[in-house]
Design a protein around this nucleic acid. Sequence first.
DNA 1: GTCAACGATTGTGTATACAAGAATTGAATT
DNA 2: AATTCAATTCTTGTATACACAATCGTTGAC
Lengths: 216, 216
Amino acid sequence: MSENVGRWLRDEIENAILSNEFAPGERLDEMVLASRFGVSRTPVREALMQLNAIGLIEIRPRRGAVVIDPGPHRIYEMFEVMAELEGLAGSLAARRLDQASRQAITMAHKRCEQSAEAGDSDAYYYDNEEFHKAIYAASRSEFLEEQCTQLHRRLRPYRRLQLRVRNRLTTSFSEHCGIVDAIFAGDGEEARRLLRSHVGIQGERFSDLVASMATR
Amino acid sequence: MSENVGRWLRDEIENAILSNEFAPGERLDEMVLASRFGVSRTPVREALMQLNAIGLIEIRPRRGAVVIDPGPHRIYEMFEVMAELEGLAGSLAARRLDQASRQAITMAHKRCEQSAEAGDSDAYYYDNEEFHKAIYAASRSEFLEEQCTQLHRRLRPYRRLQLRVRNRLTTSFSEHCGIVDAIFAGDGEEARRLLRSHVGIQGERFSDLVASMATR
DNA sequence: GTCAACGATTGTGTATACAAGAATTGAATT
DNA sequence: AATTCAATTCTTGTATACACAATCGTTGAC
């Protein structure tokens, strides 16, 4: 339980939304949430305002809060921006790499390798996140790191779906290899290019994602 | 006065921060704000939470809110990300341009030309904003447009400072010409490249900005 | 039988009251 | 004189209460 109830609630409700416990379009009643978490309406409202600012819910004046349903098209747009930001992070990382970042990336990369070989999709999902975060950090741009982390969180559930697609685990890992090579070689433009296509959901990847979303 | 007091206050306080009425580092006392705007603490708190989410202020638990002081380095990082996003917007605009967007860009571009020729820095500041927004819209990616608009707002005061630099008006406008040409020619990669260097603050532009900030 | 209007109910928006933690000030001791 | 500790005060965090807007159901008329 974070320092104040509002932030704790924000995380709690955010997780509930991202894990699809609160479905898109669902209305979030302040009183229901308050009694569910055993608090008053005030911190609930604060949490909702923050989620609204993040873009997870929409608050229509005097009409309450509803979970936003991004829809395939908007999800595509979000991945498009994510790809661009990660590309930038990669190119900066390649230019600015230091010993600590190099180690962090190497470690995360090795963990991904193990999970991929074991075919453990859940483990890879987690390790993959650490890998990408290591690249954000290696960019040595705090603002970029924040933006990437925030967007990554919003896209988390869809990234998870992506990994369920057949052979995606090994494909993903082999792409990681190229990215690591480019960054370690100091080739910023190559790192950017590889990360963009790794993160983006061009062509069949997009239809794969839509298909996974439907069969959920 | 927007539909609810909270949002109105958010805009009000945001403007006060961006126009430097509330200086970076300054502490925002909830009671003071409440009495200043003639409301209770509740909507003030809601406004502060939103500003916190936007990244304009920092709320430390039980210790109140302070206006964030970005500092030159962080501002540089923000422009770096902004350049990347605008570059993406430009490349998408070049590929997806339709008649309406083309007209909007042309009009904004002409306005910029007039203001630049008149040497009217304030008018150019406004027209320039419209020009960039027209490109965001032309990207036909709502999410990207939102992200660009939001970041543009946060950088607004510094963009304004930039324009004060000698000859920056004409330089800026001639860069616009190239950007418009590339977009209208459907050359996405050229548009991206030009926008990146137009928005970014590499080299002497950065020191110019820092210098302007100091003499404010 | 359907549509519209009015009332009841539910839920949000704002204010106020109360509790708890942090900062500051003052005194006492070294 | 300086430093530390304690107490008071000030501000934030949470709860509760009240007011008003929106929605839904019911009733009546066409």
